[in-house]
Simulated scan of single mutants.
Amino acid sequence: MNARVPPPRASSLLPEHFRQNGRGAKSNAAGRYETAASEPFDDGWGTNDAPAPRLETTLIRDASRTIIATNDSPDIGFGRSINPYRGCEHGCIYCYARPSHAYWGYSAGLDFESKLFFKPDAAALLDKTFRKKGYVPETIAIGANTDPYQPVERRLRITRSILEVCLKFRHPVAIVTKSASIMRDLDILEALSALNLVRVAISVTTLDRALARAMEPRAATAERRLEAMRVLSRAGVPVTMMTAPIIPGLTDREIETLLEAGADAGAGSASYVLLRLPLEVSPLFQEWLETERPDAARKIMSLVRQTRGGKDYDATFHKRGRGEGPIADLIAQRFEKARRRYGLDGERTPLRTDLFEVPLENGAQLSLF
């Protein structure tokens, strides 16, 4: 799979004055399915001297007719998921979901974080799905691909509408986010939690503000994410501290301090994912390293490859999330010891599915039988 993506080249980077403030990617190469590609160059006429115009976020209506995605991957802890959005304005340079934008003819680079698909009919589709005869409830993961609480959610409120449907039907749901905006929906989450129908995982990758600003430019600060953990845990919502991804040579030094901070914020469990660099993510991440961490770039990529059998990435089940080799083993050992030290190794209580109930539609009457 990696062979289809060319290695990063100096010419693939946008000129420095063309790069966008507040965005993660340093380039916008065409997707792997496109037949034509372009790249900036100096034509000698000075046309590249002017700064790039501000890159605005564009919203694209997603007319999907179904809302629940299913998978049978043996190393994923859920079989159903909902993604209210495609693409993510947080702009995290390491995001493993970036290559999915190529399916729609867009770049995994700047397009992924500025051209966002949204699903306005999500709640109606979910309601319709839950009402289908023979539907069997199973925990649905929200945010498994892109963040359900990215900035645009503040006004579109699609994630909130999905949670409202889950509460109405008493359906279990698990949420993954790196946004403090989840606190807005505390009322629904608290009601779901009282029925043991929800759990939340909040991802914190680093406590270094400068690194976070460069690596995940539009995500909430670590302090705000930890505050969200405190608010949720005090309300009785089960919270998991995620350190996803752990990047060898860059963020792995913070494993213990991150878990300590999560425990102090009220998290009851912890989990991690090792850096994943599928398809276009690898050249994008390497461009970012060469720009933001030029002195350490070669060392970091060497360590990453040592966890992937000498490659940039290995998508093999059970290896893709944890890696292999001495460095990956050391990360796993340190993480497990820190989990135990800070009391984050407890078993998570399974969410209930027996409460699921289809409410009457407006104007419907109760059956006599």
Results as ranks from 00 to 15, higher is better:
Asn21Gln: 05
Thr66His: 09
Pro248Phe: 13
Phe118Ala: 04
Glu260Ser: 15
Asp354Pro: 12
Asn71Glu: 03
Thr206Arg: 02
Ala332Arg: 15
Ala228Glu: 00
Ala144His: 14
Arg19Gln: 11
Arg155His: 08
Ala214His: 04
Arg339Thr: 09
Ser27Cys: 10
Thr70Ile: 07
Ala210Met: 13
Ile140Arg: 11
Tyr96Trp: 07
Leu189Trp: 02
Gly109Cys: 01
Met183Thr: 14
Val231Arg: 06
Ala296Asp: 03
Glu56Thr: 13
Gly31Ala: 12
Leu279Glu: 06
Ala36Glu: 04
Thr57Phe: 01
Ala122Trp: 03
Ala102Val: 08
Val237Phe: 10
Ala270Glu: 00
Leu279Ile: 05
His101Phe: 11
Asp187Lys: 11
Asp72Thr: 15
Ala328Asp: 05
Met301Asn: 03
Leu232Gly: 12
Pro120Gly: 04
Arg352His: 05
Ser64Val: 14
Phe356Gly: 08
Tyr342Cys: 12
Arg199Asp: 14
Val5Asn: 02
Ser367Thr: 10
Leu351Lys: 12
Thr146Arg: 08
Ala174Pro: 08
Asp295Leu: 07
Leu197Arg: 09
Ala296Val: 06
Trp45Lys: 15
Glu223Ile: 13
Gly268Phe: 14
Pro40Gly: 07
Leu344Asp: 00
Phe112Cys: 02
Leu303Cys: 03
Arg213Val: 13
Asn362Gly: 09
Ile202Leu: 06
Met229Val: 12
Val136Gly: 01
Ile76Thr: 12
Pro359Gln: 01
Glu254Thr: 15
Arg23Lys: 11
Arg305Ile: 06
Pro245Glu: 03
Arg4Val: 13
Pro350Gly: 06
Gly105Val: 07
Gly31Thr: 13
Ile331Met: 11
Trp104Asn: 10
Lys299Leu: 10
Gly91Gln: 00
Ala37Ile: 13
Ile162Phe: 00
